[in-house]
Design a binder for these strands. Structure first.
Lengths: 338, 338
DNA sequence: CCTGTTGCTGCAATCGACTGCACAATCCGC
DNA sequence: GCGGATTGTGCAGTCGATTGCAGCAACAGG
């Protein structure tokens, strides 16, 4: 015995399938006699009827799914975001289809094509790479989208981004409060919007507080990686510029600093303080535990999902964008300068 | 202009939709004149035709989706598994629908119900909790399933599990080779199959190598957590039994040991060596970097997906189960005893 | 020249739910 | 007691692709 269909319910309740359909759908229930509706609903329950979303989707052109485009689920940044998204999607009767692009533009195109052919109702895009032409094209074709972690410039797409500027400000203020005057910045790649925003915010935070604003104190890393962070710090150190603290572009870069500290016998935090960015898991297990800026990843995901659901409900609504506040997590890698 | 439908392709190629359908489907292509087929395929390409999986699913009763039931995506254990699954699913034209159960049986039931109503063709289950009644019921109802990380006893369901026993054996051998004779074990909860299997494997590995087999050297932790690990190690220490090395049930438990070392001023590895289990990310950043047993999570996922696809292709095939080999990753937390 | 194959294509029904329209029943006021 | 409004329900077509069956043409064999 298979899952019962609408027909079965209708037969059992002694009504026409059309009537059963209307009775079961809250939006059209008003068209049906209240008694009949009740009866149909009861029968449906007793039979364990579950509407077949595939059949429904065919007629209504809605699939109840949205696509999540991320670079790599394995990157600890994304699971909390995805979790936040799912937590909002699920109660709304939607599910997410995840694709990993590995930051490969070709793959990205293909995957998005896949998602579209699966009739997703919208896209949540968390990849930085996405080239504008594709984005603009999707926009033109009326594909609903929400961007995560990245502000699309020039294109009118809703986005959720952490308030990086304030985050950096928080880090700088913390170090300044501890008494640091010469603070260095290991920036992430400036091609990424995050890298750029944080680097700019760093300069202005330094100026605002009247600290030493020396271009030599900023070094740009080629990737958001540990190795790149290590290379960056070495360059900074070898340059001979004095500094007592480092604001790293993200936690991985900060981790690279740890490697250099070990390598050169530098003590953290007594000789150099470090602040990371992201609050990845297990940072508290490091020696010393890393002080960092926490990003509410799960909230970001949840907010993104909400925005997308809004857009699905009313595609005409203008693109809204959200900036989520960050917080400083003080641990052991920061201390007053000697 | 919308996505072209099969009709559009057929019209453009001057054939009947039925013929177009057959030409496009590799399985039925043989029924169509080779020239016609070629022409249809060409037209389809030039129009950018993509079959609508929803419509197809309605007729064929296949959705091209499978359900992934996991406790919590945020747990670093799962992203690589999911990634491995997706990597196999995608080229096969399938997608995975992820649900998080948070180890709540009620949620688990509801979520699985959700997945079934979405017409998933099979389930990959990675939760430990899943109570047998539900499992057995699903089995009876003909739902295709594959279990990950857990061997279903008594029920005939394919499963993919890491070869825990050999893993433990590897850890013990490594310590024995370093010269340790009195090795302790901080076991995970024995209600979990993993906890039990590892604990048993520990005893037998110890015996096999003729090391000191003292019941006092084994302590069972109440959870797979850092806190529980710390509690476990304290109990072990306070008991006064001598030992120079610890095999932890998993990495989190090992992390708990680190906390106790800091607390009591014990030096690792010179006073006590520790081996973890799982090889979570960033373990190499700890002080000292944790020696551990690496589990091929991604492969586990990939293998699970393959098994499920096999089952979908031929549901009659008997349940096959796979045991995946583990490997020892030697880092800084193990050294010869003093 | 007729019958019987073989090979290809078209017709139409089907999957399950939704929905515009028509029709029936009921009720109201005059 | 009749016309007209108001519910409530049924009919049938639709979404897009698949598939059993029928039909048609070409061709071989007798």
């Amino acid at each position: 015995m298979q899952t019962p269909t609408l027909r079965d319910v209708a037969d059992a309740a002694g009504v026409h399938p059309a009537t059963a359909s209307r009775a079961l759908n809250p939006a059209t229930r008003g068209l049906v006699n209240a008694d009949t509706a009740r009866r149909v609903i009861k029968v449906a329950e007793s039979l364990g009827y579950r509407p077949n979303p595939i059949a429904r989707g065919l007629k209504t052109a809605k699939s109840g799914t949205v696509g999540l485009v991320i670079p790599d689920l394995t990157n600890p940044l994304f699971p909390p975001i995805v979790r936040g998204i799912e937590d909002v999607l699920e109660p709304a009767g939607y599910s997410g289809l995840i694709v990993n692009t590995d930051n490969d533009p070709g793959r990205e195109r293909a995957q998005i094509e896949q998602l579209r052919s699966r009739q997703v109702e919208g896209l949540i895009i968390a990849t930085a790479l996405l080239d504008h032409p594709l984005l603009a094209q999707l926009r033109r074709e009326g594909v609903l989208m929400v961007m995560v972690n990245r502000r699309p410039d020039g294109i009118d797409v809703p986005s959720i981004t952490p308030d990086d500027a304030t985050g950096v400000e928080l880090a700088v203020r913390h170090l300044a409060d501890l008494g640091h005057r010469r603070i260095a910045h290991l920036a992430g790649p400036l091609q990424t919007s995050t890298g750029l925003v944080r680097a700019r915010a760093f300069r202005s935070a330094i100026r605002d507080r009247g600290l030493d604003d020396d271009p030599d104190l900023v070094e740009v890393c080629t990737y958001w990686s540990e190795e790149a962070g290590a290379v960056g710090l070495r360059t900074l150190l070898d340059r001979g510029t004095e500094f007592t603290a480092v604001v790293a572009g993200n936690d991985l870069i900060a981790l690279g600093c740890y490697d250099v500290f070990a390598e050169r016998g530098i003590d953290c935090p007594s000789e150099i303080s470090v602040v990371g960015f992201n609050d990845m898991p297990f940072l508290d297990k490091l020696r010393p535990p890393l002080t960092t800026i926490a990003i509410p990843h799960q909230q970001i995901g949840a907010e993104a999902a909400r925005l997308l659901l809004d857009a699905i409900a009313d595609p005409a609504r203008p693109a809204r964008s959200v900036l989520l506040p960050l917080s400083l997590v003080v641990r052991g890698s920061t201390a007053p300068p000697r």
